[in-house]
């Protein structure tokens, strides 16, 4: 069996079918971008909810996070795949079950799932900002929403960027769940390649292509972690002499 891995002709066939892999790669990338956007937007909202004074909002966020973190992603996606069309039919009153495009299923699936994790990242980021920051903002007359927008959230960026990139990386890998519902993504195409030829090279190719997306992200995480530890350098402001003279 393993002899086949070193069989040159099998590699030739695999490399000859790159079109298939690239198509899958493209679908995966699209799902990643849309899924990331959804998870960031929803996750930020849920993360802010979990730090507000409103019990209802905190409860909404908590229940969401616990549900999505404690159930497997494949189960969620397959459920949406099977039940989604009928639910949509009931909601929209259509004559027949409403078909959900695999792309939508994919990005909504990973988006909702990772929103739970993003929410936790945002929450810990906000909690790392000292209480005094909100008090200073309120004492200047900022509303809580303005305080979050101008003062609190920007301060969390440094702390949350590395774990957020980590989430992005996990999201990329988790898009492979789409193969379970014939999503046309990279994993699905590799699977069908291997299925029709019986060449394991297909999976190696899939690994290589996932790696191409994930490895730079992992490097980015490391870079951001290093950068977060640096002290900020003074900005030059026109008309103000830099500090050197005074310090000397």
């Amino acid at each position: 069996m393993l002899d086949g891995l070193f069989d040159l002709s099998r590699w030739q066939v695999t490399l000859g079918s790159m079109d298939t892999f690239w198509q899958g790669f493209l679908v995966t990338l699209q799902v990643v971008v849309a899924g990331l956007a959804l998870s960031l937007a929803l996750g930020t909202v849920l993360g802010v909810f979990s730090t507000t004074r409103s019990r209802v909002l905190r409860a909404v966020s908590r229940v969401y996070v616990e549900f999505y973190q404690n159930t497997p992603l494949p189960v969620q996606v397959i459920f949406m795949y099977m039940a989604g069309p009928q639910i949509l039919q009931a909601v929209t009153g259509a004559a027949s079950p409403v078909r959900i495009a695999p792309f939508v299923l994919g990005f909504v699936g990973v988006g909702l799932y990772h929103a739970a994790y993003v929410s936790e990242v945002i929450r810990t980021g906000i909690e790392s900002v000292p209480r005094g920051q909100m008090e200073a903002a309120l004492s200047q007359g900022f509303t809580r929403v303005q305080a979050y927008r101008y003062i609190i959230l920007p301060q969390t960026f440094k702390v949350i960027l590395p774990p957020l990139c980590n989430q992005a990386l996990n999201l990329v890998k988790n898009t492979s769940v789409l193969a379970l519902v014939a999503g046309g993504d990279l994993m699905y195409r590799s699977n069908s390649f291997v299925g029709s030829y019986g060449y394991l090279q297909g999976y190696i190719m899939a690994c290589a292509l996932y790696f191409v997306i994930c490895f730079p992200l992992a490097m980015l995480v490391q870079y951001l972690e290093r950068r977060a530890k640096l002290r900020p350098r003074a900005k030059a402001i026109p008309g103000i002499a830099p500090d050197a003279a005074e310090e000397a």
């Binding site: 000292p130 005094g132 920051q133 008090e135 200073a136 309120l138 004492s139 200047q140 007359g141 003062i151 920007p154 301060q155 960026f157 440094k158």
Partner: peptide, 17 residues
Amino acid sequence: ARKYSSMVFQQFNLYPN
């Protein structure tokens, strides 16, 4: 608060970013 008062805190509470 906008109109009348501002507060100086023990811990300064400058915006560090």
